[in-house]
Nucleic acid binder design. Structure first.
Length: 490
RNA sequence: GGGGUCGUAGUUCAGCUUGGCUUAGAAUGCACGCUUGGGGUGCGUGUGGUCGUGAGUUCGAAUCUCACCGAUCCCA
């Protein structure tokens, strides 16, 4: 019995290699990397189905919050993009389009990175008075820029799936309320549905997005202990309103600059983080609500006994028809051995497998194989309909508990540099430390921390509830003002 | 951003050091037949590659040199 497919390394021993294998041909076939342009990858059906669900979740949530869908073009004219550079001092490494056929274009066009510089010039037109506010729009699309770092499927690329909201308000209070709403949306989608634990952190002053007054991120932890940012919300203040002249006339007849926020859950990274956190050495594990297939039926038939086999197939077909009304179901009739199918569908993370053979039918039951717990149960045919929601819930519960346990075990307290250095020898994830300041005067301490610990970076402090520091700064020893979370990053 | 490693059938790789013994191999995959089927069945037959691309050295290049493209890992 030789193992020809599947991952050949353990997730706990070599996460990078495990992740690459899970994504690829011998794994769950999520991507094809043979497109031959670095950072641009082919998304295969198994990942696309999940992506569509993730998009759908976010779209539903932001629409409940009164956002409207929009779609802006793929290209941005140079002069708009450059306004961001003037005002925010930031241009990503965009791809430029300069030719159409042999003909040089009158003006260079950038393949869009993020939406600010393409959307706000139009917001300038759309917003006239306070009656037009708040204005909340979003778009789901693919975005592109040349990331010079090593690319990895779903975690870092040069083209990736993107989702962004762009909101405009009359007052800063409303903008801050929106940031809280963005946090709630992240909780509903990635914590409650996808079972990814995260911290919602406000970034220290020295590390905000350059065009923003404040930056907030959702940070999770990968199995190798690296922190990964899966969303960002920016409180843009007046910065872009001034750059793109987004003004409104107030009730008093005077003109005011608007307050803006934008929120971007990283669809790609959320997917990558989800498969990384939940998967195991057998392959993918998925929450029931995003699994491309929720139930697979594997018939156990015997060539020698056609009568029994026919009976088995008949029951399988009936089951498939019934279950398809509520779930995504496949009856796997392919000409492979049952054992092969078990492994195949476990690799792909199908939560529930129904094995139906003569032995089961003799007892009016099916054998249920659960992906998360690896256990097999006997369930009477008549009870199956009632049982499946319970099994789905159990699937999600295992994923959630495992993920939450891992996350909690990887957030550790430390009081000073020595403790931090000791902790990171064995520990992964976040170190929770008191820091003298999260304003610019705290930066020297953050720099010192990073250089003395080979890259432990101050990520930010909790936004949801204030955590007052009682002792002294872990780096300089002065009185601490905040508890911050620090980690090595992806 | 810095440093490695790698590129030969769909996939994983051998062959390269010491150029010719290869009409480029193996396993696996895929297709067909028989067999088998409750955890990746076994046997047989078939299918499949301008050795990443381009240039150079040479009588002769998968093998040596250079450039480019791509992939991948580690460190910041």
């Amino acid at each position: 019995m030789t193992k020809t497919k599947g991952v050949t390394v353990k997730k706990s021993e070599n996460f990078s290699e495990w992740y690459t294998q899970i994504c690829g041909e011998t794994g769950a076939q999520l991507v094809d990397l043979r497109y031959d342009v670095q950072g641009f990858i082919v998304h295969r059906p198994w990942s696309m189905r999940v992506f569509r669900k993730i998009y759908q979740f976010f779209e539903e949530e932001v629409e409940k919050d009164n956002h409207e869908p929009m779609l802006f073009p793929t290209v941005i004219p140079e002069e708009h993009l450059m306004k961001e550079k003037e005002h925010a001092g930031f241009t990503p490494e965009v791809f430029w389009i300069e030719y159409a056929g042999e003909k040089k274009l009158e003006k260079r066009l950038a393949l869009r990175p993020t939406g600010e510089t393409q959307i706000y010039p139009l917001y300038h037109y759309w917003i006239r008075s306070y009656n037009d506010l708040p204005l909340k729009g979003y778009q789901s699309r693919i975005t592109t820029f040349r990331n010079e770092m090593t690319t990895r499927p779903f975690l870092r690329g040069r083209e990736f799936m993107f989702f962004e909201t762009h909101d405009v308000f009359a007052s800063h209070e409303e903008a801050v309320a929106q940031i809280r709403t963005d946090l709630e949306i992240m909780k509903k989608v990635i914590r409650d549905k996808l079972k990814i634990p995260f911290l919602f952190l406000q970034r220290p002053k020295w590390d905000v997005f350059k065009g923003a007054d404040e930056t907030f991120t959702s940070d999770s932890i990968l199995p190798d202990g690296k922190r990964i940012q899966v969303s960002s919300t920016h409180d843009l203040g007046h910065n872009f309103a001034k750059a793109f002249d987004v003004q409104f006339v107030g009730k008093d007849g005077k003109k005011y600059y608007a307050f803006q926020t934008c929120f971007g859950p990283g669809i790609w990274r959320i997917f990558g983080t989800m498969i990384a956190i939940h998967g195991d050495d057998q392959g993918l594990m998925l929450p029931f609500c995003v699994a491309p297939l929720q139930i697979v039926i594997v018939p156990i038939t015997f060539a020698k006994d056609k009568e029994k086999s026919d009976k088995v197939l008949k029951v399988c077909e009936k089951l498939e028809k019934e279950l398809k009304e509520k779930y995504t179901v496949l009856l796997d009739l392919s000409d492979r051995s049952p054992g092969f199918k078990f492994n195949e569908w476990e690799m792909k993370g199908v939560p529930i497998r129904l094995e139906v053979g003569p032995r089961d039918l003799d007892n009016d039951q099916v054998t249920v194989g659960l992906r998360t717990s690896q256990e097999k149960l006997n369930v009477k045919l008549k009870d199956l309909n009632k049982k499946i929601p319970e099994l789905a819930e159990q699937n999600d519960k295992v994923l959630e508990e495992t993920a939450v346990r891992y996350f909690k075990n990887n957030v550790k307290d430390a009081k000073n540099l020595e403790e931090i250095k000791n902790i990171i020898k064995t520990h992964k994830g976040f170190v929770r430390i008191p820091l003298c300041s999260v304003q610019n005067d705290g930066k020297p301490c953050a720099d010192k921390l990073k250089s003395e610990t080979q890259g432990v970076d101050v990520c930010g402090f909790l936004f949801e509830k204030e955590e007052k520091a009682s002792g002294n700064c872990a780096v300089c020893g002065k009185k601490a003002t905040k508890i911050v979370y620090a980690a090595k990053s992806v």
